[in-house]
Every structure is written in C-alpha cells, then in structure tokens.
Simulated assay, not measured.
Amino acid sequence: MKGRNMTRWRDPAKDPRQEPKSNLITLEGAERLRGILDHLSRVKRPALSAKVGEAAALGDRSENADYTYNKKELNRVIARIRYLTKRLDELQVVDRLPAATDKVYFGAFVTLEDEEGEEMRIRIVGHDETDTVKRWISVDAPLAKALLGKALDDDVTVKAPAGDTTYVITDIAYRDPQQ
C-alpha cells in the first residue's frame, strides 16, 4: 500500500525533529516576526478576502479557478497568522547583553578559524531567525552548542558527517539590542 500519505517510520526517541527547540529570540527577530504578522493581518488577509468575495460573486465556484486559488491562498495566510500568533506568545525575547561579553552566549557574533586557516563569522540566534546567507545559526545547532560558554582563543571540536572539525575562536562581539 504505497501512496503519497505513507511515510517512513521513525523512532521518536532518536528522531531529531522531536528534540525540543529553544524559545529564545533576539529583539530584532521578534520585531521582524511582529511586522510579518501585522502585514499579514492588516494588508494581505483583507485583500485576499476581497478577492475571494469578488470571485464568489461571479457564479459557479467549482469551475472558478480565481476563486479556488484565492481561497487556498487565504487559508494559507490564516494558518500563518495563527502560527505566528501562537509562536510569538511562546518566545522569550533576549533584549540585553550578557554579563560576561568575553564569552560566547546567545546573540553573539563569533569569528572562527578552522584548521586550514579560513575564517568564518557566525551569529548565534533563535530557531525562528536562522539565515544561511548571513550565517546566523540556531542556538540548537551542534556548532552553537559547542561554542556556548567558550572564551576567546578556545578550541572547539564539532562532530560533522565528514568527521570532526576543530575551530579556534578568534573574536567575540555583541550588538547592543537597545540601539
């Protein structure tokens, strides 16, 4: 019985998707999510509702592609609004610098040097604000977990599929969230 609804069984104890995610977020990340929620609630949802109403007024809905598309899009936007509302209630906003800025904590910009001498600058952020282009990694990522609490010039070894990788912390910086 193969079909599109069949999935492979995963042991819940070993499934990485079941690991609890931290509920931390930076102040600018929380503001960005609130902005998205506000745009969806005040602009996108009313516009889609109007389009659905106009398409429904045209007659037979079963053959009305405009109605079908806009109705699906409206349902997607409503689901996203529900998700963001619930998620923003769960999140804990980190709106101040740590007491010891000479160590790596949440929100830190960390410059790492690998064994070949190549430098990489990352930022440790919440799960909801990760960005591969900016090199912002989740606080739940293996590299971030290995870095937390470390100081300047500390060696950090991270297990990767290709083998263990060792980095040296060459710089730690923070951006003041109140600015």
Rank of each mutant, 00 (worst) to 15 (best):
D131H: 00
T165W: 11
L148Y: 06
Y167P: 05
V125D: 15
E116C: 07
R121D: 12
V156E: 06
T165G: 01
A160R: 11
T165V: 14
G163I: 06
R123M: 13
L143Q: 02
T132Y: 14
I124P: 04
K150S: 08
E118Q: 11
T166G: 02
G126V: 05
H127W: 12
D171H: 15
S138A: 00
I124K: 01
T165H: 13
E115V: 13
D154H: 15
L152R: 08
I169L: 01
V168D: 04
A144P: 02
S138V: 01
A144F: 00
T170W: 03
A146G: 10
V168L: 07
E119L: 10
P161M: 06
D131S: 03
K159S: 13
T166M: 05
G163F: 13
K159E: 15
G117F: 15
A151W: 03
K134F: 12
I169R: 02
I122H: 05
A141G: 11
M120F: 15
P142V: 03
D153Q: 10
I122M: 08
L152Y: 14
P142F: 09
V156T: 03
M120V: 06
G117T: 08
T165L: 12
P142T: 06
V133S: 05
A144I: 01
R123F: 07
P142Q: 02
D154Q: 11
P161G: 05
A144T: 01
V156H: 13
H127D: 13
W136I: 02
D131E: 04
K159Q: 13
